[in-house]
Design a protein around this nucleic acid. Structure first.
Lengths: 243, 243
DNA sequence: CAAGGCCTTGCGGGATCCCGCAGAAAAAAT
DNA sequence: ATTTTTTCTGCGGGATCCCGCAAGGCCTTG
């Protein structure tokens, strides 16, 4: 059994390395990569490795890397070890985890023991381990209460990218009006909507722009999510007959 | 001489501690704080300490903390030790550094020696040390070439917060039309403007929203800058007679 | 002093956004 | 199978945004 560590911070990398050796004495090899690209390559070469990785790396972010790794070998076990439990990250991860895959998500703020326990649980016991804080985020994100539909999230991303209603409609195969409906929904859920009567600070906010702002502040969106979305967008634009 | 370390990651904190002790043997005390608030408090107590701190901490971000520290004691020497050289950070820092203050900005990716050298330069030699990468960003940011005026940056923040033209005009004491002029300027500089004739992807983008998107992607804006701006905004709103 | 820049402001109009209203279509519940 | 609920869609209008045009103010340069 080999373990592949993908993490761009050298301090954290060596810490992880130590933790892995301590927690998994039966492991016979620890590989290290300092960004997503190198990680993917190593994962391809060493076809049986388990992976523990950071999200948020400069070159190629963790979610991207995890996606391609899982695409090539869905049974790979991955432990995500991240600083944050941003909803954007949590959502990004749960979106790409394959059916029945074993994975984990623990925060860097977790104790030494928790990390080691997670390593054993995932790689030996084949059991998923998700930090309670992350789990909470997941529930909030997927549950109906205060949670965002896939449709809502999608349109949020679209306006964050600066697309116009028409463009969104085109991209998502909807009528313009439907797009606007979803937008209204989104505004309500983000608490941005002005319920007509109560004109406290009237006309101060541009709803569309404000929605993006609060989404960012709430970490419903973050830089890497935006980057990913932007990449998708340009791909779609290229595929589009630009009249 | 004492040194105060403000850094939320325990690994990095202890690494810093070691580096400080090694680089500054004449220092007779190292204090640690794990977020901006605690850091400010300690800085207040220990009135002669030098500071080395991270930007981007969860509780209270580094720039905020640095600002209040410098406000209370402008001659404090601060070394910023950060993962990133986002334009937003660089700009945020250079905006708050007091006249003639000694400070530094080195990236976490820098070598051991560079860090120690920076520590000595700043705290012993009273000499500013700014990583070349950061320096480059600074030049780009402040120089006219591809750089943003204070006015432009200000309005960028305002639309990122979701304010309407009218609200911005009100806040900045301008006519609505002037706001729109500045916006146009901004659009040009961000490469978002559609020069009328060339209608390649016409009407696909909402300029206002798109401007925010590219600013985020370029890291001209980031989460902590937004948070700061949002705080300022709510303060202003509270002070406003909301008709 | 005049000439040329740069910033500000008003006007006006076309494009876009925001959204209530109400019917059609689809999905879910009974 | 029928009712109920949700979602999609068009219409219409008011508010906002985007921006060309042009007039006035301030500041530099010759």
């Amino acid at each position: 059994m080999k373990v592949l560590i993908i993490e761009d911070d050298p301090l954290h990398r060596s810490y992880l390395n130590e933790a892995v050796r301590a927690a998994l004495p039966e492991c016979d090899g620890v590989l290290e990569a300092e960004n997503g690209n190198a990680g993917e390559r190593l994962a391809r070469d060493c076809k049986s490795a388990h992976v523990v990785m950071d999200l948020q790396m400069s070159e190629r972010n963790g979610i991207e890397a995890a996606r391609t790794i899982w695409k090539e070998r869905p049974e790979t076990r991955i432990l995500f070890w991240s600083n944050y439990s941003d909803e954007a990250y949590v959502r990004g991860v749960s979106r790409i985890v394959p059916m029945g895959a074993v994975y984990g998500y623990v925060l860097k703020s977790a104790s030494d023991d928790r990390l080691k326990l997670a390593l054993r649980s995932i790689f030996i016991e084949s059991q998923c381990v998700i930090d309670r804080e992350v789990r909470g985020m997941q529930q909030k994100s997927l549950g109906n209460i205060n949670g965002f539909t896939e449709a809502e999230y999608e349109i949020l991303v679209d306006i964050a990218l600066g697309l116009t209603d028409r463009a969104i409609a085109q991209r998502r195969n909807l009528s313009v009006r439907s797009v606007q409906n979803r937008l209204q929904q989104l505004y309500v859920k983000l608490g941005v909507y002005q319920p007509l009567g109560g004109q406290s600070d009237d006309g101060r906010f541009n709803l569309r722009a404000r929605a993006v702002a609060v989404a960012l502040l709430r970490k419903l969106l973050n830089h890497s999510a935006l980057e990913r979305a932007e990449a998708d967008l340009t791909a779609w634009l290229a595929r589009q007959p630009h009249n």
